[in-house]
């Protein structure tokens, strides 16, 4: 009995002494921190994805609190909603930003783009890219090792077993841009999410001359310029044998999709063609 008592008392005594010491040490070495940083951090998603370009959500919060206005600061995960919440908390005005989404600009499926050799090495796009052009005749297209998939923290991108290309899951993608950075070929781009996720884009970044591009991949952009001529909004430009649709100018008329001879221009999430209603166009900003 005595032993138990002594043990309990001595342990308690040690605890009390330690607590007192800790209290004074904490007082002595207290670091004054802006309490607003905590407030901002609590509003952030807490994924620590680094998509904003700062070291984690804490780093972002510090920057937000320190900065005078919130220009150029965006949590890509939380999006406009989070930013306006932060702005309200700090008593500032949030800049409006359009929601974005990652878009894979390659359509070189096994069918469209036959393999010309076989890669046997570390399964990483970055390693392949530093070694050579890739398993197909196209030196611009997707390498298929899934570096974008492994960096995605939101389970929003996956390799399709059918085509061997990454597919973005619209509902999961928060446009943090991690896959854009990870892709050594620069295939993935952040584009406007569009009304009801409707998007039009050139699904190819091959800058080779038409003939070479076509030989490597049947779905390649050959830079023929038909889409450029068709577009009445000056949204399409052709550089280095490659068409690019500027999503800020595109009015989603889908005329370019119809004229593309190789099917390189893709439309996503549109209603079937015949039911096209002009209201869709007017809605888009």
């Amino acid at each position: 009995m005595n032993t138990i008592l002594i043990t309990v008392i001595s342990l308690c005594a040690i605890g009390v002494v330690a607590a007192i010491i800790l209290y004074f040490v904490a007082q002595k070495f207290k670091v004054e921190e802006d309490p607003r940083i905590d407030t901002v951090e609590s509003l952030l998603p807490g994924a620590n994805c680094g998509g904003c370009g700062y070291p984690g959500c804490r780093g972002f919060s510090e920057t937000v609190v320190k900065s005078e206005n919130m220009d150029g600061l965006l949590c890509p995960v939380g999006g406009a909603a989070t930013m306006s919440a932060i702005a309200t908390a700090l008593g500032r005005n949030a800049a409006a930003s359009t929601p974005k989404i990652a878009v894979v600009r390659c359509n070189g499926s096994c069918e469209n783009r036959p393999h010309t050799n076989k890669y046997d090495g570390a399964a990483s796009c970055a390693v392949v890219h530093s070694l050579y052009a890739g398993e197909t005749g196209c030196s611009y297209g997707c390498l298929g090792c899934g570096d974008c998939v492994s960096v995605c923290k939101f389970d929003a991108i996956a390799m399709s077993t059918e085509t061997g290309l990454p597919v973005v899951a619209d509902e999961n993608c928060v446009a943090c841009g991690a896959c854009v950075k990870a892709c050594p070929k620069g295939i993935i781009e952040l584009r406007n999410k569009g009304v009801r996720n409707m998007r039009i884009f050139v699904s190819c970044i091959n800058k080779d001359k038409g003939g070479i591009a076509r030989k490597a991949c049947s779905a390649a952009c050959i830079g023929c310029g038909k889409c450029f001529k068709e577009c009445s909004f000056e949204a399409i430009k052709i550089e280095n044998n490659l068409a690019y649709i500027d999503f800020t100018k595109c009015k989603m008329c889908r005329k370019c999709v119809a004229v593309c001879p190789t099917g390189a221009i893709h439309e996503l999430n549109f209603p079937p063609r015949k039911q096209v209603v002009p209201t869709v166009e007017t809605k888009e900003e």
């Binding site: 050799n117 076989k118 890669y119 046997d120 090495g121 050579y132």
Partner: peptide
Amino acid sequence: NTLIISPS
């Protein structure tokens, strides 16, 4: 055959 490519 299809040639195999690997890093050295």
